[in-house]
Amino acid sequence: MAHPIKLQIQFGGGAELLFDSIKSRTIELPAIDKYFPECQREKWTIKELLVWMKDNLLRERPELFLQGDSVRPGILVLVNDTDWELYDELSYELLEGDTIAFISTLHGG
């Protein structure tokens, strides 16, 4: 049965500017079938997390954070301090207590 989960989400490298300049916050996602009634899965993946973030946290200019159903180029996504590429990227099934970080790459020097 689907149930709510708590996560830590973090932003860095300037990505926090799109999220009220808050670098770290705890969020609670409702049971996935409550948020996406059509959804067949029982667990949230990063793909749905991005939709939830767009609906609930992203104030303006979503194109500076998202592109298609993923994050835009130049943002590194980390699952518990590890590149999400090592965790199936969008398909990663979120676990209670996970920390998901979105780090914009810097280019200055």
């Binding site: 500076l64 835009r72 180029p73 130049g74 590194l76 790459t105 810097l106 280019h107 200055g108």
Partner: peptide
């Protein structure tokens, strides 16, 4: 790691 460059409007200096 970054196969595509970021959109120019997202890059700060």
């Amino acid at each position: 790691i970054f196969p595509r460059p970021p959109p120019p409007e997202t890059v700060g200096s």
